[in-house]
């Protein structure tokens, strides 16, 4: 298993170099898709999946250890919980400040920007939360499926 793996993948200089050059641009594009979702097609799901695909590409071209150097399992779990907590936290805070659950206009009492601007900004916060959760869950699914649960040695 081990030597087939070492000869079959990860040893090609062209693939390694091009992936190393490509990954920052893919991550930048993912962040652009999340942030620019108000004005163009895109949003939390799509940007999160693109951000996750950058790590999956790293794990395919190098090996799983390399991708876990850039995003450890602990950081992955942190991002998963952070995304869900951002989403539910925004809803809960807007409920605490006098509105309904997920009624962003109530956040105007916290920072006065104007209720309609808070609608726009609340959608942005929620999309960031969705993006974090989707990114880390996609990476986690790929790690588990490609190593069949051991998380230490991939395809």
């Amino acid at each position: 298993m081990r030597d087939i793996y070492e000869h079959s993948a990860g040893e090609d200089l062209i693939i390694k170099t091009s992936v190393r050059l490509l990954v920052p641009f893919i991550q930048l594009f993912g962040l652009y898709v999340i942030v620019h979702g108000h004005y163009s097609p895109g949003g939390g799901f799509q940007g999160g999946v693109i951000l996750g695909a950058a790590f999956i590409l790293l794990a395919l071209a190098y090996d799983m250890k390399t991708s876990q150097e850039y995003m450890t399992i602990r950081v992955n779990a942190l991002f998963t919980n952070l995304g869900a907590a951002i989403f539910i936290g925004v809803g809960a805070v807007s409920a605490i400040f006098g509105g309904l659950f997920l009624d962003y206009a109530a956040l105007n009492k916290l920072i006065p920007l104007g209720p309609i601007e808070w609608h726009s900004f609340g959608i942005f916060l929620v999309e960031v939360g969705v993006g974090f959760t989707v990114m880390s869950i996609m990476v986690l699914l790929y790690w588990n499926l490609s190593s069949s649960g051991t998380l230490d040695e991939g395809l």
Binding site: G43, I88, G91, G122
Partner: peptide, 26 residues
């Protein structure tokens, strides 16, 4: 007018149907 978001799909996804998106994340 109600959300200042030109992309209607994002506006409906994040604001009018926020519960849908939240439980989808869950």
């Amino acid at each position: 007018e109600e959300t200042h978001v030109p992309n209607i799909v994002t506006a409906v996804l994040g604001d009018y149907r926020g519960y849908d998106t939240m439980f989808e994340t869950v």
